[in-house]
């Protein structure tokens, strides 16, 4: 069929069967090589984290003497010593601070952004499009711009170094992405649903809570996981606005960095503690994570 319609079939046709065979062999070999390369790349991405885990499970003396990969020949060296010295160092407090910062931030961002997104998607008011374009513009404002001014404000109000201060900063900088993501989703809700409710005289807050919010669940889940990870993993905002009482894990660990060599037991176990919850969330909800990332990638 193909050879019949091709304008200059003769040379290709003559060589075709042979090339097909060679091509298939090359494919087979190439496929094998591809598999090997991919396995190596996968290892390349896995090994750094694995190294952290193993280092956290060995004594500082063993870590100072040999590489973590020797664990495979002597698995008996595994010990939770580093984790017990981590707990003894008061790290638990910073773990709960991380929770106390992350959970309220995530809830507030979802609630406040959903309200604004609903207004942007389904209410009619003057300057709506302009305001929304401002939100789009604010998507990539660097956090650095607000560090000094907000520190001045917090100093005046007296919430510098407190968890509410850290939370409010996170909420504000989480909003543009959240509003953007939710508004784009809410806009896709069939207008017939809303109009029917409005025709029945349902109040706006009721439409929002009973129709829009439930329909928006997939987008809200994406946003929630994204926001949670973003706040959980933040270091810069904590560095500026938290003190030693209110510091989350990232800041607590950062303060140990100067003596990297001698603190490696606390640093490795602490770093692993800080990433275990994000990893569990990631594997449990990776579908939402990917969706949120794609929806927000206009950034």
């Amino acid at each position: 069929m193909t050879t019949a319609t091709a304008p200059a079939p003769a040379p290709t046709h003559a060589g075709a069967p042979q090339r097909g065979l060679v091509g298939r062999i090359v494919d087979r070999l190439g496929g094998g090589a591809l598999q090997v390369v991919m396995v190596l790349l996968g290892l390349f991405w896995l090994v750094p984290t694995l190294g952290l885990l193993v280092v956290s499970l060995r004594t500082p003396e063993v870590n100072a003497a040999e590489g973590w990969w020797t664990i495979f020949t002597k698995p008996a060296e595994i010990t939770f010593e580093s984790y017990s010295s981590l707990l003894a160092s008061g790290f638990t407090a910073s773990f709960w601070n991380t929770v106390a910062i992350t959970v309220p931030t995530t809830v507030l961002v979802i609630g406040i952004a959903a309200m604004a997104a609903y207004a942007f998607a389904w209410m009619d008011f003057k300057g709506r499009d302009t305001l929304f374009l401002i939100v789009v513009g604010l998507l990539i404002v660097p956090i650095q711009i607000a560090l000094i001014p907000v520190a001045v404000i917090y100093g005046g109000v007296g919430i510098f170094g407190t968890i509410p201060g850290v939370v409010l900063f996170h909420v504000a900088f989480g909003l543009p992405f959240a509003i953007f993501l939710l508004r784009n989703f809410f806009v896709g809700i069939p207008s017939s649903l809303l109009e029917a409710a409005r025709m029945d005289g349902a109040p706006e807050w009721k439409i929002f809570v009973q129709i829009v919010f439930p329909l928006g669940k997939p987008a809200i889940a994406s946003l929630g996981i994204f926001q949670f990870l973003w706040v959980w993993n933040d270091m810069l905002i904590a560095l500026v606005f938290a003190n030693t009482e209110s510091q989350p894990m990232t800041k607590a660990l950062q303060s140990q960095m100067r003596q990297f060599g001698t603190n490696i037991d606390i640093l490795s176990s602490g770093a692993f503690m800080s990433l275990i919850i994000p990893l569990i969330l990631f594997f449990a909800f990776q579908r939402y994570f990917v969706q949120g990332m794609m929806a927000g990638s206009v950034k």
């Binding site: 984290t49 993993n233 270091m235």
Partner: peptide, 15 residues
């Protein structure tokens, strides 16, 4: 390959 996205940059730094 996607997993490091979930890890804090702080932890990635230690790694």
């Amino acid at each position: 390959v996607f997993m490091p996205m979930a890890v804090s940059l702080m932890a990635a730094g230690v790694i």
